Computed example of a mutant assay.
Amino acid sequence: MNIAYWIVAGLLAVFYVYAGTLKVSRSREQLRPMMAWVDRVPLPALRALGTVEILGAAGLILPPLTGIAPSLATAAAIGFVLLQAGAITVHLTGEDRRITLNAGLAATAAVSVWLATGL
């Protein structure tokens, strides 16, 4: 179960570090082709979302790796489930109805929650 957690959490962390870095460092014009919803969100909120994604990725990896407060990994994974629930809502209320990636990320984060409880 420990190996399964590291695989799932590692994949989630890589995705969220990448996505968060894009949101923090790129302009709206650069993000628009991949994220149609960026025009509906204020730029500071977009930057904050990217920061939360990067910190959440660190929360999946660092606590179990260091042994310091490993329950924070469960909290980070729950946070990603909630984040994707919000993302699905944003996609469905706008013109962009593509939620397959969000549903997959929510399911993967839910598996990560389950696996983190066994750490």
Results as ranks from 00 to 15, higher is better:
Pro42Gly: 05
Thr74Ser: 12
Pro70Val: 11
Gly50Lys: 01
Ala73Pro: 02
Arg47Lys: 15
Phe80Cys: 04
Arg40Pro: 08
Ile88Met: 13
Ile68Thr: 13
Pro70Glu: 11
Leu82Asp: 12
Val52Gln: 07
Ile61Met: 06
Gly86Asp: 04
Ala75Gly: 06
Leu46Ser: 01
Thr66Trp: 10
Val41Thr: 14
Leu82Trp: 08
Ala58Ile: 14
Pro70Trp: 09
Ala45Val: 14
Gly56Ala: 04
Arg40Cys: 13
Gln84Ala: 12
Leu46Cys: 10
Leu43Arg: 14
Thr66Asp: 11
Leu72Gly: 06
Ala73Gly: 11
Leu83Ile: 03
Ile54Lys: 00
Pro64Cys: 13
Leu46Trp: 06
Ile88Asp: 07
Arg40Tyr: 13
Ala73Arg: 02
Pro63Cys: 05
Val81Arg: 01
Gly86Ser: 08
Ala75His: 00
Ala77Asp: 06
Leu62Val: 15
Ser71Asp: 13
Pro44Phe: 07
Ala87Ile: 05
Phe80Tyr: 14
Ala58Gln: 05
Asp39Asn: 14
Ile88His: 02
Thr66Cys: 10
Leu49Glu: 11
Glu53Val: 02
Ala58Pro: 04
Thr66Lys: 06
Pro44Asn: 12
Pro63Phe: 03
Ala85Leu: 15
Arg40Ala: 15
Ile88Tyr: 02
Ala57His: 00
Pro63Ile: 05
Leu60Trp: 05
Arg47Phe: 02
Val52Leu: 13
Pro44Ala: 11
Leu62Ile: 15
Ala48Pro: 00
Thr74His: 08
Arg40His: 14
Thr89Asp: 12
Val52Asp: 00
Val90Lys: 07
Arg40Phe: 12
Gly50Asp: 05
Gly56Cys: 02
Ala75Phe: 09
Pro64Val: 06
Pro70Ser: 09
Ala77Leu: 08
Thr51Leu: 15
Ala57Lys: 00
Ala73Glu: 03
Ala69Lys: 02
